[in-house]
Design a protein around this nucleic acid. Sequence first.
DNA 1: ACCTGAACACCGTTCAAGT
DNA 2: ACCTGAACACCGTTCAAGT
Lengths: 188, 188
Amino acid sequence: MNTADRLVAAAAELLDSGGEVAVTLRAVAAATGVSHNAPYKHFPSRDDLLAAVAAADFDAMAAEWVRIRTSPSTPAERLANALDVLVKFGREHPARYGLLFNSPELAGREGPLRFAAEEALDQFAAIIEDQQNTGDLPAAPADHLAVLLAATAHGLINADAGGRLRRRTNWAGVGDGLQTLIKLLSNH
Amino acid sequence: MNTADRLVAAAAELLDSGGEVAVTLRAVAAATGVSHNAPYKHFPSRDDLLAAVAAADFDAMAAEWVRIRTSPSTPAERLANALDVLVKFGREHPARYGLLFNSPELAGREGPLRFAAEEALDQFAAIIEDQQNTGDLPAAPADHLAVLLAATAHGLINADAGGRLRRRTNWAGVGDGLQTLIKLLSNH
DNA sequence: ACCTGAACACCGTTCAAGT
DNA sequence: ACCTGAACACCGTTCAAGT
């Protein structure tokens, strides 16, 4: 594992343990065992290091979605599992989740992060398309449905993280809200 | 206008002009014409000042929704207008929008911000309920539909701000995505 | 009650060297 | 090619005074 990868891993751990504010370049460098400005030899700025963490997480998410998409479950189960990947990541890694979906400035950048995000969304959309083909979701373009479902998932995850979800609904969690929406969208 | 309100207004302007990073207590104080730590006499910390900006914005949003709710348009138009308030605020004040909906740590706090957010969502839910009563939306609990629609709106606004919306769809903007969802949810 | 000014510990980033 | 150490300008926050 080269220094750049170790810096990314250290940053991810700091995000998990202390949130975005904990990710100072000095702390990342110390956790990696290099001097306080060695990171600049691998990343132009702190934001670029964070973008690298986000890109790696999108890659991992895409890999999970590939696994789910080719798993032997039913299309409906695969869709539920795909959504659960998002929900679980948001719950277990809130700061890293924020990098992926709550940071428009980061998302708007060119580069590997944008590419990784598109790759991941491709897999997500494919899972949705499989479920559409069972006739159980509206026949809208798969990309439209994928964007809508991802958007709703994201909104519900944020609402729950801020404590706003359970104050207004009797849902046990984000999954219940998503299943409610899917039921409303289903053709029966 | 007292000092606390002027500090909040100055912080809001800095958010609009330079994003969250531009809101240093020193810049806020300078823009307000007080010394660099006078803000501490009105807010315990920078986060509390930001929370006050967010609470004020939720109050303004709630007021807009009250106006829309009691306007003479049709329920469907009122729903579209209510959603447009969100979309427009996200587009025109991205940093302040982020304080309202992209900052779970802030949203999770107790205090006036939480209260203001609930008041605003109450109005939004009422507008949805009016449209439900026309029979043109599913008969799910209004709070459920309100949370789902607000979540989708938020997700689409974020996707668009990050440039991810228009790369995957032919929608001209967030509004098109929302109308697509509403159509899919409608009973005809 | 409200404000000021100095000070502290910290941070991102730059620069000049080192191997 | 990769890293180190000093330095700079800045920031949130604290503290001791001032009126």
